[in-house]
Write a protein that binds this DNA or RNA. Structure first.
Length: 194
DNA sequence: GGAACGATTGAT
DNA sequence: TCAATCGTTCCT
């Protein structure tokens, strides 16, 4: 897998959030840090929409969710349960508070780093959940608001996507639980739940 | 100022 | 099934 080339352009993100969530499947998430490079193929996403009660932005702008209302193509990173970071991609037009949660990756590069950061866990579980992949790629508070169009944290186009896309309800939410807004590559061993 | 809660995870 | 753990949000 070649991890070079141009990141996905701004136009990719400035679209309907459900479309972006689907089309992010198969793309490549890369994080270069002083420790080295870690990268993986996105295999699971969830869409969060402005009129969706589970979306942080559904009840208007707050200090935490301000990034979601800004330009698309940036990272929205927040702390959940006081312990884990969740990495999202901001989508749609400026002023529209929507994003895609990246829920799972298939590890592609940086096995040694991921192994060290994830402790005792098998490779297919390094990035099989939002909190896990944030740990494996060392994504946290410092990445909130950064551009994904250039810089150390970026997303490159993937190859063709042969797998079927599976659509289900989202994981771990109460309100809006019935909405079919979770997408994953059927057959992937690295999704958070099948 | 205080309290309830959460887009999770790993151990029991 | 359950605890860990703390920033955010909302209420007083």
């Amino acid at each position: 897998m070649k991890l070079a080339g141009r990141p996905l352009p701004a136009k990719f993100y400035a679209r309907d959030t459900i479309t972006v969530a689907r089309e992010l499947l198969g793309t490549l998430l890369i994080h270069d840090t002083p420790e080295g490079r870690t990268a993986g193929r996105i295999v699971e996403t969830e869409a969060y929409l402005r009129d969706d009660p589970a979306c942080h932005a559904a009840r208007g702008m707050t200090p935490r969710n301000t990034i979601m209302f800004g330009p698309s193509g940036r990272a929205y990173v927040y702390l959940i349960y006081g312990m884990y970071w969740c990495f999202n991609v901001v989508t749609a037009s400026k002023g529209v508070g929507e994003a895609v949660l990246i829920r799972a990756l298939e590890p592609l590069e940086g096995a040694e780093l991921m192994s060290r950061r994830r402790g005792r866990a098998e490779p297919k579980s390094w990035c099989s959940g939002p909190g896990k992949l944030a740990l494996a790629l060392n994504i946290g508070k410092a990445q909130n608001g950064v551009s994904l169009l250039r810089g150390p944290l970026r997303i490159l186009p993937g190859g063709p996507v042969p797998e079927r896309v599976h659509v289900t309800t989202r994981i771990g939410i109460q309100a809006g639980a019935e909405l079919p807004l979770r997408f994953y590559l059927e057959g992937s061993l690295c999704v958070s739940r099948k």
